[in-house]
Every structure is written in structure tokens, then in C-alpha cells.
Amino acid sequence: MSASASLVRRFTGIQRLFHLGLILLFMLLSVTGLAWMFIEAPWGAWLAELFGGYANLLLVHRVAGLVMLAGFFLQIVYLLAVFDWRHPLRALASHDALVMQWFDVVDFFRHLRWVLFGGALPRFERWGWWEKFDYWAVWWGLIIVGATGLLIYNPVLSADYVPGWFYNVALWIHRIEAVLAMGHIFTVHFFVEHFRPSTFPFSATMFDGGMPLEHARAEHPRWVERLEREGQLQARLMSRPVWAIRLLHIAFGYVMIALGLFLVVSFIAHVGLLKFTALF
């Protein structure tokens, strides 16, 4: 296969499927969650109407939350299944692992220095520090919103185990973590992955499964060099999808980006209309 016209495989089919499921569920939870939060404002009510009103909105949000938690459980099962149990320490310290390592800390500070016009851009391995951060942020986010979401899912039942004032606390934790997740994904993640000059107008890596080799050499040079050194690069090269599939990926991606940006802008525009409580 011609290396110049190829992609370097970065994600397996099941990993892309996990990401696709995460996108769909996250968007569904974002739309229903914000509609719920802003139900008194016209745009919140309008979003709720798309789901058939307030009651259906809650149902969809709750069911989508449960499905996402099930997906999180499957992700854990998947990790346990693919983990190299014969060499656990080597697996955890592998450059292919998403475990934060010392070189990520070093890369982070070098990256920061480069952004501030000092030094050279770090030569990243397979995963940059920000990609590992994004991955683990999903874990921490899901644990927080999942635990609080389950607590308030059926408050009468939960009251058998915790006092009702836990719901006051859980609701705020749930809301703020959700806003953090949405804000980060719809601004930072979208910009880094799709709107930086080197990725604009769209990075289809997570959808195609592979990254253009030229881009990989520029952004993850240590990874490509390691693959070449270990003679694994050829095995990782893959063809670009046919144009119709690529078009579908781009169209889907842009619909999600547009939806995310719409939610961010709407949130900022309406945050003063929250009537159910006061922060100060």
C-alpha cells in the first residue's frame, strides 16, 4: 500500500463504535438536560417540545443516562478483556496505553512553552497529553454525573439510603459537571480536533479510524518512528474510506458540531433566565 496516500490506523472498529455511541448519547443527554434546565425559557420549552413535552423529556434523559452508564460498564469490560494480564506493568507503561505517564507531564510543559512562543513543539507519542486528559475526563465525568444521576433517578427509593438533602447537593453537582462536560467538548475538544489550522476543516480520524500519515508524522512523530523502528507501520496503514463514507462522516461531524455550538451559545444567552434557584 502506498504510504503517501494512506492513513495510519489509530482506532479499532470497536473503539470507533464506542466513540459514536458516546457522541449520540452525549448529544441526546445534552439536549434533554439543557431543555430540562431551561424549561421555563422559550428555547428550553421548544427543545422539550421536540421530545413531546416535559414528561417525555425526563424519560428520554433518564433512559439515555442509563444507556450511557451501561456503555461505560461495557468500556470497562472491554478494557479488562484487551488488557495484557500477563505483563500488566508493561501494559500500563506502554506508549499505546492511555495511562498518564511522566513524559506526558514533560510534554505538557513543553507544549505550554511552545504555545507561549518558546522552544519547539514536543514530539508526541501515539497519544498527546490532551487526548489522555479528554479520555479520563469522560471517566471522571461519567462517575460524577452517573452517581448523582442514579441518586436522583428515583428519589423516593434513594431516600431509603440517604437523607433527602442529598438531592439538593447531588442536583448541583450533576448540573455543574454536565455544564463542564458540555462546555469542554463543544469548545475545547471541537476546536482542538477540528478547527486548529492543522486540523481544519475537519479531522475524520475518529470516524475513518486512521490519521493521514503526513499529519501523524507532524503531530505524533515519536509514534510513527516507533512503528517504523518496530516494523509495524506497514501493518497499520489503511486506505481512506470511499468518498461517500467520508462525506457521511463529515456531514455527521458537522451536524454534531453545529448542535454543540448551538447549545453553547443558547446556554450563554439564557443563563440569566434560570428561575429555579439562585447561586448567590
Binding site: 504555545v115 519547539a120 513543539l121 469548545t187 486548529r196 492543522s198 499529519h215
Partner: peptide
């Protein structure tokens, strides 16, 4: 700010270097 700075830094680097990808160390 980091993300905006990253994008701006890449843009400047591309303008300076005239390359399609950023220079790496």
C-alpha cells in the same frame, strides 16, 4: 486560553513557515 493560544501559535507558525503542518522539534 490554552486552546486559543494553540490555534494562534499554529497559525503564526504556518504563516512563518508556509507549510501545511506545524514544525515539530
Amino acid at each position: 486560553p490554552f486552546t486559543v493560544g494553540w490555534g494562534f501559535r499554529e497559525l503564526i507558525q504556518r504563516i512563518w513557515a508556509g507549510r501545511s503542518h506545524v514544525r515539530v522539534g
